[in-house]
Design a protein around this nucleic acid. Structure first.
Lengths: 331, 331
DNA sequence: CAGAGGATCCGAAAAGTTTCGGCTAGACTT
DNA sequence: AAGTCTAGCCGAAACTTTTCGGATCCTCTG
């Protein structure tokens, strides 16, 4: 199946089909649609099979680059692609809406072998763009429920939330505050649900006043911690939805003259490199970010080689890392 | 000037020339050299002028991704390239030797518009690889003296070192320890020289025992700080060559029961995002990393469009950010 | 020492991409 | 209403890339 055949069937010239495939602008929308439909119907793929050649490009798509795990994901993807000599391209959307049409055109134009999308909710039509150009993609830690036929990689966030809360319970804490991430993010909700599950299993009723929401950044941890600590009956421990938020909690505690962990225990989530160097070293739930990205990269690479995937949804295990920010509550 | 003409003159076929240009492997070294020489001689450039089209790729080359400024540089380059719709590709060498031949081949194969090299000393032959393929490049914060005809972007490290040390002198410190980065890095040497200059201007002799060297990471800051604080006459302030090292100093101070800034003042260098959130908030010298990378990207982009550069070497100003990790020495 | 078995290199031919000029349709002027 | 402009769209032709098979040259046996 060559573009010449597609062109013939569509009643256009070869260059026009080439332009559609490569996302060049000078094609009328109607013509483009017609050609795209035929490309999809015939399952057209470039003759060239990348992967063993020296070329190869994987697009890594972020909504933003502020969060510290962005770097971990980049490193993981980089190490996996370096093995096969591929490069990785960083894209940032600066919006949670997902990429627009022009972005797909650019990606096609640079002949990307595959796309890794980080925590972004793509619409069906956006998946369609990728499929029409037969660009394989994997979603890492999606915000919403991933469509069942979309390949995705995540972490066992629920278990992580459970483990963190259990750890605090075992230390003897009974009032445990929770600072969650955005409630519409799946990964964030799962952590909070793990927290709830741990409490309920221990027979402790969940107090909604102890659950606050923010974004995953330092500032929200700081602000929500002040809210929690201003409660008439403040918590003796706080489980933050991210390490950054946990650092914000540290800050708030210091401003109130509270010592960690003597007066307040704090658990984070992510295990970013600085969690170890913080003071006190932060007890946190490790998320294997590098492995997740590396796995996603390998999945995309396999798909671009036409190999079938064994599993479309993979969750890597989180693990509790106990450091010095947690202790038994003061009697 | 088409590749057909080059092929004719070189006595090879058109495909062979194409392969040389695109760094494909199946060309004998001798043939490759011959063709490269002719390409250079005729100043061959692809007919297509990228830049205004939807394509466009800038390679950002790191020696490693561990340092926290890597992300700042990525963000700066990303914001500059996004303006023109170009993408950025991350490469990591994992060695200070600079990229090897296969890397240049890959870069050529993916039709990169330009390369930004982060603090890596390239040999003349490596510059030659890029020139032979007429790939423009800019070096950011080079380790060694950049060759005079190489475009580069840096920061005023010397002034930064001077400002940081002056700040400590003005607070009344007289014994100021210095933990430098690798002594063979130009940026690191400049900071130390600024430190020396400040002391000498103030009429204080430089005590070599107070100057220690490490890499730019947390661990070396920690170890060197212990060395300095074990001195018979320990310093009352430490100027670290990087924020990460400064965090290591914090750690060492805490282990010795020293309070910052009451017993020990600490100044860092870089102003990474976490410097503000650390405890105490770190006084540091801000390096405009994002702006540096953005400028480098714009330079590369301009070069790829064939525009001449006004200046081949640009240094962006550093600025002292005073926070809470510095105070007058205890009387 | 002949010959099988590779590995490497090259180019003819096929496939794909880009330029550039021309066509067309709507908008605007006279 | 006719002429003029302009922007968008398309395809012929020029250019480049990729595949694939054949040529050449080692290297290792029988």
């Amino acid at each position: 199946m060559t573009i010449a055949l597609i062109a013939q069937e569509a009643g256009v010239s070869v260059p026009t089909v080439s332009k559609v495939i490569n996302g060049r602008p000078e094609v009328a929308p109607e013509t483009r649609r017609k050609v795209e439909r035929l490309l999809l119907k015939h399952g057209y793929t470039r003759r060239t099979t990348l992967g063993d050649g020296p070329v190869g490009l994987i697009d890594l798509v972020f909504t933003e680059l502020e969060s510290p795990w962005a770097m971990e994901l980049i490193r993981g993807a980089e190490s996996a692609t370096r093995e096969v000599g591929a490069g990785i391209v960083i894209s940032v959307m600066h919006t949670h809406a997902g990429p627009g049409r022009d972005w797909f055109d650019r990606v096609a134009a640079r002949r990307t072998d595959g796309v890794i999308i980080v925590s972004s909710r793509l619409s069906a039509s956006q998946y369609g763009h990728l499929n029409a150009r037969s660009i394989p993609f994997v979603v890492v830690d999606p915000e919403g429920e991933p469509a069942p036929d979309v390949a995705s990689v995540g972490a066992t966030n629920w278990h992580g939330g459970l483990a963190a809360t259990r750890h605090l319970l075992e230390l003897g804490h009974r009032r445990i505050g929770m600072i969650g991430g955005p409630p519409d993010m799946l990964c964030s909700r799962a952590r909070i649900d793990g927290y709830r599950a741990a409490l309920e299993t221990a027979g402790i009723p969940v107090d909604p006043a102890l659950i606050h929401y923010g974004d995953f950044l330092v500032g929200s941890g700081h602000d929500r911690a002040h809210d929690l600590l201003s409660l008439p009956e403040p918590p003796t421990a706080i489980f933050a939805g991210s390490d950054l938020q946990a650092f914000g909690v540290f800050e708030a505690a210091r401003q109130r003259g509270l010592r960690v962990p003597e007066n307040l225990s704090v658990v984070g989530f992510d295990d970013i490199p600085l969690a170890r160097s913080a003071w006190p070293p932060l007890t946190t739930v490790r998320q294997p970010l590098q492995e997740m990205a590396a796995l996603a990269a390998r999945m995309v690479l396999a798909m671009s080689r036409g190999e079938p995937l064994e599993t479309r949804r993979v969750e890597l295990a989180t693990s509790l890392i106990v450091r010095d920010s947690t202790a038994a509550p003061r009697p």
